[in-house]
């Protein structure tokens, strides 16, 4: 197990260093997410007031689209100079490589989320931080779940044709529970009289989703990546 953590940390550190050098995916994804927020606010604001509860939907949908973009771009780069096969050649547990890549994407999406939540809070003056722990917990669990399934599909699609269009086609039907739980959990937090029990239930559901699909992804990464 220590070996898996060591390798995962190594891959994560490499991804952070590579990303910090070019910051290409970070800037493009953050800008894309902000433009999503703008577009949605035009759609959901009527006579100055946002439609009741639209804010949580906007946050999560902007997050999902930005995540999908980041996933596609991150693996595109690995494919470009065949680096992914270089990693698969290493004499290590291949699931550890998956874990390292996943953590890199979760970190990236976390940065994007900070910006998205800031803008939504600004535009709609929503009390996101009335219950900060639950809210951050929902976001974190949702991101890990979404990025977990997304990273596996993106890695797997790396060698398939028309992968850019296939990623969302595969990703959204599977991650529907995360989006439902995320949106409704956040809604329960920011509505007039926040319903904490409901929010906790949704958080528990996302954590269950994470547990199931991360183990499944960790387990199937090896057979899916061998041609």
């Amino acid at each position: 197990m220590r070996e898996v953590l060591r390798v995962a940390w190594l891959v994560l550190r490499k991804d952070i260093r590579v990303e910090s050098r070019s910051r290409e995916v970070l800037y493009t994804t953050t800008f894309f997410a902000t433009s999503c927020v703008l577009v949605f606010s035009f759609a959901f604001v009527r006579s100055g007031r946002p439609v009741e509860g639209a804010e949580s939907g906007i946050v999560w949908v902007a997050l999902a689209y930005a995540g999908q973009l980041a996933l596609g771009r991150a693996f595109e780069r690995e494919l470009h100079h065949d680096a992914l096969r270089g990693l698969l050649l290493a004499p290590v547990e291949r699931g550890a490589i998956f874990a390292g890549k996943l953590l890199g994407i979760v970190l990236l999406m976390a940065l994007v989320e900070v910006v998205v939540v800031f803008f939504v809070a600004l535009f709609f003056s929503t009390p996101f931080f009335a219950h900060p722990f639950l809210f951050v917990g929902l976001l974190a669990a949702g991101t890990i779940g979404f990025a977990g399934v997304g990273a596996l599909f993106a890695a797997m699609l790396a060698r398939a044709q028309s992968r850019a269009v296939l990623l969302p086609v595969l990703l959204y039907p599977i991650t529907v529970p995360v989006l439902i739980a995320g949106v409704n959990g956040t809604l329960a937090l920011i509505q007039a009289d926040p319903n904490l029990d409901l929010a906790r239930f949704w958080l528990a559901l996302i954590l269950f989703f994470d547990a199931v699909f991360l183990t499944l992804a960790f387990w199937t990464f090896e057979p899916l990546m061998t041609e």
Binding site: M156, L157, A160, Q161, S162, L166, L224
Partner: peptide
């Protein structure tokens, strides 16, 4: 549309 190898995927 996945091309070769899409059966495993």
């Amino acid at each position: 549309y996945g091309g070769p190898g899409s059966d495993k995927l």
